[in-house]
Design a binder for these strands. Structure first.
Lengths: 210, 210
DNA sequence: GGGGTCATGTAATAGGTTACATGATTCT
DNA sequence: AGAATCATGTAACCTATTACATGACCCC
């Protein structure tokens, strides 16, 4: 019941969306994804592309329309969206927009294991992250401005705005975490807990072989 | 050069961290992950667990310490962290904390293809998302409060605080996006663009064989 | 006209998830 | 005692990524 969708890779959704208005061959699809910068939000590589195209075909969401052989390039197969494909793509979009899905960001992993690091070191590391985040955010901001100047409708930038909102939130979070970890009562508590754990381990490993 | 780390699955990091103070068998590792709620931040399932344990062993980060056969349960192999394993785990943690990594959240995918949806429908869908986000946020908040009451150190909740910060940011973003999409000049612009695309497609598909 | 690099695709490999298997324990 | 559930692991299956292959074009 986890994944009742026949093809689950987001790349497939992009394929369906791009075939909405005109049939295309896979390479062209890939080219457009990169050109329009969608590969910043959708993990893209050619291998996966051919894979999802094949999966979509098997599922009946796209159909081989013709095979062009203009003796220059290798033979290219052009695919067109089927009715089922259009339905699937709308359904999928609706779900993605309306239902938040649980995700597993890497930083969440780090935070959930943060206890293993000495708090003073953690603070240093977090400062580094803060700097990196700032510079990323600046980059995104600049990109948005540049694109806007080219007269692109803001809806086509909405994903960058989202990214920026997330970055800003994370920057604030990191800043406040740095403060929290610096508090001397925490540092002391951590050191005690750590030594506690260590002692336990040492005494218990005495009686095991190794 | 993408993944010079021998074992890349975050679950492996959790395994290393849990073996820091005492050797354990895989099932016990899994039990603790679930018990301490780490499976909210680290994708967990037993199959993957046995997989990463094996990978870690091959990589020399953990070593088989003994095989217990207390005729009750199936034979269990107990693993211990090696020195290389401890080094790897600290190095990995440091990287995760200090270096933001590019991620591909599902909502970003949706946003980058948002243009295919009629803006009035998009607004409805976003309202639904907003509601869902609020209720999730409320849940996380409640969880944090409950755990705090049990006297748990706040560092062990820091990942939930992070999640909350993200949720709040997304809520604000969605709210403002709803406003933006409702603007009548955008709705008009979208309808024109859409009809444009449709016309082009129809006329071009006339001369292709179906 | 030979060395790069586009354009295009296939195949080999590795990674992860689901499904299956099996004995013990506990519940009614 | 039979049913449900816990404890534990293996194996089969999918998915995704990397590596390889090949012909045209382009540039001095």
């Amino acid at each position: 019941m986890a994944n009742r969708r026949a093809v689950g890779n987001p790349l497939a959704l992009a394929v369906l969306a791009n075939l909405l208005f005109e049939p295309m061959h896979p390479y062209e699809l890939g080219r457009r994804l990169k050109e329009t910068g969608k590969d910043r939000n959708i993990r893209y590589n050619r291998g996966s592309l051919y894979m999802v195209v094949e999966q979509l075909r098997k599922a009946g969401f796209i159909a081989e329309q013709e095979t062009v052989r203009d003796t220059a390039r290798p033979e290219r197969t052009v695919y067109a969206l089927t009715d089922a494909g259009r339905d699937e793509m709308y359904d999928w979009m609706r779900e993605l927009v309306s239902r938040p899905e649980h995700e597993y960001p890497k930083f969440g992993v780090a935070l959930s294991l943060l206890g293993v690091l000495d708090p003073t070191e953690a603070v240093d590391l977090l400062r580094l992250r803060g700097i990196a985040l700032e510079s990323e955010a600046a980059g995104v901001r600049a990109g948005i401005e540049a694109t806007k100047k080219m007269g692109v409708l803001w809806v086509f930038l909405v994903e960058e705005e989202y990214r920026l909102a997330q970055l800003d939130a994370e920057i604030r979070f990191v800043t406040s975490l740095i403060d929290g970890l610096g508090a001397p009562e925490y540092v002391r508590a951590w050191q005690e807990a750590f030594n506690e754990g260590k002692k336990k381990w040492e005494s218990s490993s005495d009686q095991g072989e190794r």
